[in-house]
Design a protein around this nucleic acid. Sequence first.
DNA 1: ATCGCATGCGCC
DNA 2: AAAGGGCGCATGCGAT
Length: 542
Amino acid sequence: MVVMVSPEAEGAGRLRVLDPVTSEKISDHTTADLASWIGRYEAEHQPRWVFPAAEALYPQLLEAGVRVARCHDLTLTEGILLASAGQHGSPRNPAAAWARLHGRAEPPDKPPPARNAQPALFETDQETLSLDLLVEVYRSQLGRGEGQRLLIAAESAGGLAAAEMTDHGLPWNEGVHRELLTEMLGPKPAPGARPDKLAALAARIVDAFGGHPVNPDSPASVVRAFAREGIDIASTRAWLLREVDHPAVEPLLEYKELARMWTAHGWTWLDSWVHNGRFRPDYVVGGVVSGRWATRGGAALQLPKALRKAVRSLPGWSLVVADAAQLEPRVLAALSGDQRLAEVSADVDLYASLAADSFDGDRGRAKIAMLSAMYGGTSGGAGPLLAVLRKRFPQAVGHVEQAARDGEQGFMVRSRLGRTSPRPGAQRMALMERTDEESLQKSRQAAREWGRFTRNFVVQASAADWALVLLVTLRRRLAGTAAEIVFYQHDEVLVHCPAGDAPDVSAELAAAAAEATGLVFPGTEVKFPLESSIVDCYGDAK
DNA sequence: ATCGCATGCGCC
DNA sequence: AAAGGGCGCATGCGAT
């Protein structure tokens, strides 16, 4: 069964039950308590729910204790279909989709919710759209999305998984975090003051420059200070500073590291993002053009490794941490059908295996070669290494080089499941097409840059396909158990579960990885190992 | 006072 | 001197 949902203010709503094959109306319903209605119907029928946007509706259902298994998200789907039609960035809400079908003016998307906004129990500004309109958009999407059914289903399920993860929250031990901050930075400073250790380092930096005032937070000020000492640096990037022989370098590097911890993940972050022992980021499903997720606030996908110490399971519970090993080169092997690279992928350490096959056992060089192929890099002597790779793995290298050529010519490229890259913007496209003598250089550079983007897109986006399918497959497998998926980051999943269930969860993870591989790359011989460990502390994983 | 851009670093 | 793809975020700083 398929049920269209049109939420109204104050938790009310309208619903239409549709025939799953024809999408014809079976019955209409209105209710003052949408959550309860959905909860009852879910228990009895487990339909596919059609939501205008799970992001807006599902948190309220979860708040009311209602979960659903399956949905079709009209907003997420519209985003995929628009991109597929070369219309990245158009409004993708259902009302805009309907307007497009009828040649009317398209209402813009609503601005995203305020940073770290506390979700209201029942939002009253939720746009109410008629069931007729929603059904029309749904049918249109089924037609337009014929070739991307798995991607649409996975993206929609991802929308549910994201809301559930925010609802669970990542178990966060505030005490551990505070101890770490005190250890690194000193006691929590008064408002407006710098932590002791940062102040001390700043003083050391000034000393090292002979007492001249220097603001270590200002790159320009640091560059000027070095210039006074006769040292020219192009920027204050850490990797560049490391090459400089000067007493200020060491305290500067330490300052940068600690300052980042203070400003990005210090006491202020803790107070605004961790409540009752849980960190609840807002995930933005498909927020990156490649299909990777983003987050709104909280920098959840950029947690410094040092902070993983603060992620602790509750007493009697465990964390199962799973990480796809070297996902992107495996994806390239499967995408391109390169038999030899498929054989290399049999090893959990793909780079070691690649080194043994083609680089005299030099893992570092093997890795540089592979990364250059996937990113289009040429530095670090990558050129000759790439040549070796091309000779030994012509299909794999040919695959990314074709994607690069497509991009250089302004064509779109697609991920395995059909997610589509944007076209170059009008300005870049105009530059890329210029052939006059004075612009030739810039034209070629613009084309090469876009080629690097599309080269990487096919790999990164197909890896995101695989990881998304893994996530939603795992979600389905864990439904009805006590286990909670609590974190998802590109190629990594964390599950929080009763300690006794952890081995079962690990088994489900392995099964989900195999299932994802079969769904995304049917028939491939490429191996996609998932390294998982059962721990009490995220910092102890691997 | 407020905004947008550049810088630089965190993660994958 | 730049160099390899994708992001989010805090800060500095000039423009408004």
